[in-house]
Amino acid sequence: MATELELKLMIQPEHVASACAFLDQWCQREVSSDQARLPTLSLMNAYFDTEEATLMEAGMAMRIRAVNGQFIQTVKTRGSNRVGMHARGEWEWTVPSDALDLSLLSEVPLPESLQALAWQDALVEVYRTDFERQVWNIRLPATAMEVVCDQGSVTSSYGNDRICELELELKSGDEMGLYQFAVQLAEQVPVQVSVVSKAQKGVRLKYGQIEFPPKPLASASDAVLAAYWYEVGLVYWEAMHFMQDEVLSQPWRHSMMQLKGYLPDDLAQSLVQLDDTVASYLLEEETSTLAQLASIKDIGLIMLSIGMWLQQQADQ
């Protein structure tokens, strides 16, 4: 089993070329095996579950990935969002075709609800993702990472959703390097932190529900409550663009104001200023309001700065 730790960033299609140019230029500073652009991949992922969403309810996802004529079977646990980053268990096997090999699950510590294995006969393909992946190896002094840009779609019998995102995956070293590099990218290109995985997008198509983090007890520490409101805000921001409904900017703003109460003064003030900026855009009667909001660099920069602060609190 491997533990995958990644920082995901939303990006709008009109800004992808700028992000790729930034990554190309970064690699050209010092070309080596751990800092270079890699070949672009065309990926197909078929995700499997029962009609009753047995795996999803147990916190697991199972897929077959086709890449360059090879097939890879993957099982992932839901894991946890570590203050905007995803940490989850992952098992992978090369398989001969696009058919699941369920015997491989003997290597996975299944949750109790799945151990009876009766669900295996009811597995069906519930959605799939098709996307092009551009890949860069990036090296900072204390961090090695893989950065990918994915563009494509999630499709199912219930509808489809767009994939347009960047992922920074830790390969070795200090995980804070993911945030530090993301900040340098966000200074050049408007991006926003995302906690919504491709698998969650597929599930959302079927159930039409937005998945929020579990609410902590009122007696939880300030750091825990701050992390909760931070992630709630990230979910609302992504949902606003998925649903193309600027009305969701209101619960997003509410979440940010709840978060403000747990932050140090400088970060709290940055949220107040950001709220004023967003409010000014919302007052304008423009059909492109969501696109304009997604082009505000400060949104990504401020959320990354808060994410770094929250991560530091969690590590204490």
Rank of each mutant, 00 (worst) to 15 (best):
S172G: 12
Q292T: 10
M240V: 10
A199Y: 10
W229Y: 14
Q200S: 10
S32I: 09
F131W: 05
F131G: 00
L263P: 11
A226W: 05
Q70A: 03
A66D: 06
E4K: 03
L248C: 12
K260N: 10
A218K: 11
E169N: 08
L123V: 06
C20F: 02
R253Q: 14
G152W: 01
V232R: 02
N137T: 08
D266S: 03
Q200I: 11
L283C: 13
M176L: 14
Q180K: 10
K76M: 11
E285P: 14
A239M: 06
M256C: 15
A58E: 04
D315L: 12
L274H: 00
H15N: 13
E169M: 03
A2G: 12
K215I: 06
R88N: 15
G152R: 01
Y207M: 11
N81A: 13
V147K: 04
E187Q: 13
K215H: 07
Q28V: 06
V154L: 04
D49K: 02
V147I: 12
E14P: 06
G208Y: 03
A46P: 00
R253D: 13
E284A: 08
S103N: 11
Q184P: 06
D265T: 06
L310H: 02
Q184D: 08
S197P: 13
L263A: 12
L104K: 02
K171I: 13
V126F: 00
Q35C: 15
I64M: 01
L38H: 07
A226Y: 02
P141E: 11
S156R: 00
V193T: 05
S153Q: 15
A199W: 07
W309D: 11
A2L: 10
R37Q: 15
V196M: 11
Q258D: 06
T54Q: 15
M10L: 09
L168V: 04
D150Q: 01
D24H: 07
A279I: 06
D275A: 05
G152S: 00
L178F: 08
I72H: 09
V278M: 04
R88W: 13
D222A: 15
K201Y: 03
Q258M: 09
G79D: 08
E175I: 10
P213M: 14
L259P: 08
S219T: 09
W136K: 05
V75I: 14
S106R: 03
C20Y: 01
M145G: 04
Q269H: 04
D265P: 01
L105M: 07
W119Q: 05
A19D: 00
L290R: 02
A226I: 07
N81M: 14
R88G: 12
A268W: 00
W237I: 11
L105A: 08
G59F: 01
Q120Y: 07
T155W: 00
L123Q: 08
V247S: 09
A220I: 15
Q258G: 05
R29D: 09
Y281I: 03
